[in-house]
Design a protein around this nucleic acid. Sequence first.
DNA 1: GATGAATGAGACTTCATTCAT
DNA 2: GATGAATGAAGTCTCATTCAT
Lengths: 220, 220, 220, 220
Amino acid sequence: MTEYEAFKELLELDDQEQLTPKQRQIVQAAIEIFSEKGYASTSTSEIAKRAGVAEGTIFRHYKTKKELLMAIVSPVITKLAVPFIAQSFVKQVFRDGEHKDFEELLRAMIVNRFEFAKKNVPLLKIVLQEVAFHPELQDRYKHIFREEVLPHFERFVSHYKEQGLIKDYPSETVLRLVITTVIGFLVTRFIVMPDADWDDEAEIDRTIDYILNGLQTVQD
Amino acid sequence: MTEYEAFKELLELDDQEQLTPKQRQIVQAAIEIFSEKGYASTSTSEIAKRAGVAEGTIFRHYKTKKELLMAIVSPVITKLAVPFIAQSFVKQVFRDGEHKDFEELLRAMIVNRFEFAKKNVPLLKIVLQEVAFHPELQDRYKHIFREEVLPHFERFVSHYKEQGLIKDYPSETVLRLVITTVIGFLVTRFIVMPDADWDDEAEIDRTIDYILNGLQTVQD
Amino acid sequence: MTEYEAFKELLELDDQEQLTPKQRQIVQAAIEIFSEKGYASTSTSEIAKRAGVAEGTIFRHYKTKKELLMAIVSPVITKLAVPFIAQSFVKQVFRDGEHKDFEELLRAMIVNRFEFAKKNVPLLKIVLQEVAFHPELQDRYKHIFREEVLPHFERFVSHYKEQGLIKDYPSETVLRLVITTVIGFLVTRFIVMPDADWDDEAEIDRTIDYILNGLQTVQD
Amino acid sequence: MTEYEAFKELLELDDQEQLTPKQRQIVQAAIEIFSEKGYASTSTSEIAKRAGVAEGTIFRHYKTKKELLMAIVSPVITKLAVPFIAQSFVKQVFRDGEHKDFEELLRAMIVNRFEFAKKNVPLLKIVLQEVAFHPELQDRYKHIFREEVLPHFERFVSHYKEQGLIKDYPSETVLRLVITTVIGFLVTRFIVMPDADWDDEAEIDRTIDYILNGLQTVQD
DNA sequence: GATGAATGAGACTTCATTCAT
DNA sequence: GATGAATGAAGTCTCATTCAT
């Protein structure tokens, strides 16, 4: 379980650690307002006001408004992919080949993403919104996805497929179904209906169950 | 199957039917640019240019830029909910209570939404983006969802749960899992990776399978 | 007294008599809105709406918005000067040279202007406002004043001055004081405080008294 | 007489003292153009041009064009009422009860207003024009008038009425006649015919005389 | 004559960015 | 580094006027 704590550290690593106080205020304010009204509808003057700094100060730290957005959004993209890239993940999966493993892997992933989402709702809102309009972001995502996530995932899936634990779908399809279900859960939980009365543990369990059943070879 | 064609007609009905030519051009151009760059980043002058009309003409038909957005987005909200509200749906489900039925229901829903999405990618992009920033839209969605979709769905689910065909999850959870999977599919197919090499029929089949398996009571 | 009725007729003469119904509606609406919000702040579309005609119809009858203003304002300027120009006035004054006469002249003038103002508050508001910004109007006023009003008045004043009934002030000063007092009364009565509880007869009497006393040679 | 000089200081006091240079240029330009063409017909771009600043600079100092108008007009309203409110006025009047006193009071008021008008023709033009179209301004005027000016004046008038120095008219009527005559003089002098050949001292004397005679009890 | 959709110039205003202090 | 006044390009919207119907 300590390996997941390592993730967390990794996540917090390249963060707002070496930011000056003013910078921290600016980034904090920008995250809040960007996530409330969207990047395009947010004015730098409003950011400055909420951050309690002069408007000029923003541009001392970030050449342009867009650079500020990227400074906020970029680390999140990395963080989002990290769990898949991390070696520990791979190791764990191949330690043995039982079904239990797949469930544990899923649970680890979901719980980890859940905790991350919980702590970063505004950040995730921003990413979700802005990815659509900034090709650079899309490119970075696609690159990471194709080069890092997909290959790793491919290995898991073929491993489990060989063992007859999951259906013989194309890996892309499996990946799509899993990711879609997980993201769908998190988005519903934290963005669409954050104020509903959630029994998080139960919902996580049910979501895992749903994925496992959904993917398993039909037993008849 | 002709009942779904009826839906389509319904969908196209109250639409851009009584628009003047200029208005049609404006709406068309606005849909395109809104979906490309987002509402906030789109200027009315750009819309006018692409529509081939004077900028003032936009404001003769829509008092504000926002009213133009709403004129575009509002009917889509209605359309999206229509299939759930339509009586034919309900009838079909209760014709008999076999498992086949559930699959057919699911397939009908997915195919129907698939066709709709296919023809309305830009519109869906706009809705997906802008719902986040316009509380009026959220309210309308929530209202339709709570008053129309949820009650209908509730009946289906309890029907199938009684027959032991799907797990004994809360209806909200079942709804979430199904909708999430369907939307996830459509978003991946048409928005995230529209240019990938898709075998639509197969993917639809697999998605239906995934949902059915995912929800069914474990048979062991 | 019939001579004053002649004035009235004159006043109503070149009026909105030969206007088409639509034109009448337009002029009526324009007068209302111009006097409420001022010429510059009134849009032709608002006039059209209140008049119940199409915007284009306005421009069928008046080449420009300004022409509409002038069509409204011009007759008023004439009307305002008419009593001074009219021959009957002169005649009356010189019928005899008694003090009573001057008072009657004054009273006639004030009552006449009072009735005119009463019926034309919106028109007078417009004139008062717009004269300031349209040199053509100023020129017309000055012309009428210098060519028509002043010469006539001059005769009255010198007549009364010779008789020792009024002070030996320059005629311009006498004219200024009288006009100023009358206009001041009318503006207060109908524009500044139209809703106060006025005893019109008494106020007219007092105003006449004030002027007479103010101008008369000091009796000591 | 030094007390009137005190007024002047008061008038200039809370003024454009703490304005930045740019702001001063903007206000100066705005006063000029507003008084030439009226508020509604003046564009902010023209103000900016005449002020020699960027158009945006106007809106850095005044959120809206109307706020700029109010910043210009508001202090004038106060200034106009100040002489009536000031204590020195009251003191002077009640020093003794002779007729001489009333004349002096009148003269003081007229001379003071005359000097003020002389230096503030454009400002007065603006106020005169815009009061008609901005209910807020009317309200402020009416408030000041009812709460400050009228009560003070009432005391003077009843004082003089008791002494038989002025007619037994309602105070409102006396006030109306006096103010009307004074304003009529100033408007004629500075706005209607500023370019005529005026003998200011003589005209002031005559105006005072006219008022005194006009109001005094008839001596026969 | 009457209409009202269409126009485009120009209005007010916002905003990211610069720069002297 | 920090400030915030200043900028001017660009945005949304208004409006007098035209013109095809």
